[in-house]
Simulated assay, not measured.
Amino acid sequence: MANRAYNFNAGPAALPLEVLEKAQKQFVEFENSGMSLMEMSHRGAIYEKVHYEAEALLRELLGIPTGYKVLFIQGGASTQFAMIPMNLLRSGKTAAFVATGSWATKAIQEAKLFGEVSIAASSEADKYNRIPSIGELKYDSDAAYLHLTSNETIEGTQWSEFPDTGAVALIGDMSSDILCRPIDVSKFGLIYAGAQKNLGPSGVTIVIIREDLIAEPTAPVPTMLRYTTHAKADSLYNTPPTFAIYMMNEVLKWVKENGGAAGMEARNREKAKLIYDTIDGSNGFYRGFAQAESRSLMNVTFRLGNEELEKKFAKESEEQGFVGLKGHRSVGGLRASIYNAVPLESVRALVSFMKDFQSHNA
């Protein structure tokens, strides 16, 4: 489609055009049922096929080992900030966190409402422009869990490798980089991710949880906020976000058709390299925010010489069909979010614009 925007939104984010076009065709009538998927019961065989197919594809593409449950939960990753300590932070235990930026900070603040929290490592002194090294991590051997945010969308930093935490359950917020590359799920006790960046539209959150962590909370927790509730009912205890799960299923099919997690990584590294090379080769006109070894494959954050120039960049880019290049309001600057579904052609167009903008404003 010639009139598609160059979509660099941080979330909700770009979806594969092929998926959108297929959904458009199936929206009014799904599989000769005489109705839309949005109109049918989530207890019926047609929807259940979609539901379980999405789970199976997620297991396949992430290589999820046996002994883990895959849950589809509403409320976004922000609900998981509370749900995790409500279920896993027992009395007398401490939850350890790695403070890497805005989203890790939100998770820390929420956990403090339910129990003791410690900071295993922090990059706050560096304005969160880097990911702490594994060697920097300090936490109790009997901690309830160690929580990290695998990719900080606002600061544009990403973990390149994950720690082995032994008996301490490792928890990963992968909302903004799940399936951008292969990962070893067995290192984690729990992984969670809002769908609206790499998996589909907003409305559903993925929780991958090791079965030994699924237990009734020791303190009173509302029924809908217990992992046991969703695990026992295969995420069908109440009406799930059926359209979001359908769309996620189609996105997962697209990922599989395009080489799986390894194919996504090759695609994402090529896109990221184009932009980072442009930044690094600009003789200081563009300045990357994240330290080189912590740069994200998903969110490229950068600055110009002053805010007025950044505003001009944002305005002129919008006029040329680019969407979402303003940095987050809390930090300013500029940001290109290049999730799985962002086409290489969009990134090439952005690089061309960046070079042209520099030539007229340096």
Rank of each mutant, 00 (worst) to 15 (best):
N151Q: 12
E110K: 14
K271H: 04
T153E: 15
E39G: 13
L170I: 02
S296V: 05
C180A: 14
A54C: 11
I209K: 06
N238P: 01
I208G: 06
T205Q: 01
I183K: 08
G333F: 02
K256I: 00
E345R: 11
I206R: 03
I209S: 08
Q158I: 01
E307R: 12
L146W: 01
F289K: 09
P240E: 05
A272N: 04
K232D: 13
V331W: 01
R90K: 15
L37S: 06
M86G: 05
L170A: 01
K93W: 00
A125R: 12
K127F: 12
N9T: 14
A107S: 14
R59P: 10
P12F: 07
P12N: 11
P241Y: 03
I208P: 02
F8Q: 10
Y145Q: 07
F30N: 10
H360Q: 15
W159Y: 12
S294T: 06
K355I: 01
Y286V: 08
R59N: 06
L213T: 09
G305R: 11
G63Y: 00
D280Q: 08
Q74H: 05
Q74L: 06
L190A: 03
S202V: 11
E216H: 13
T218M: 11
I119V: 13
C180V: 13
V98M: 05
L170Y: 04
Y339R: 15
T66G: 10
S346C: 11
I206L: 15
S202H: 10
Y192C: 10
V251S: 06
A314V: 15
G34F: 02
I134W: 03
Y139P: 07
R303L: 05
E60Q: 15
M38K: 14
K93V: 01
A104L: 03
V70N: 10
A195R: 01
V207L: 06
V98F: 02
L252Q: 06
F81A: 12
P217V: 10
S91D: 14
I171E: 01
A13Y: 00
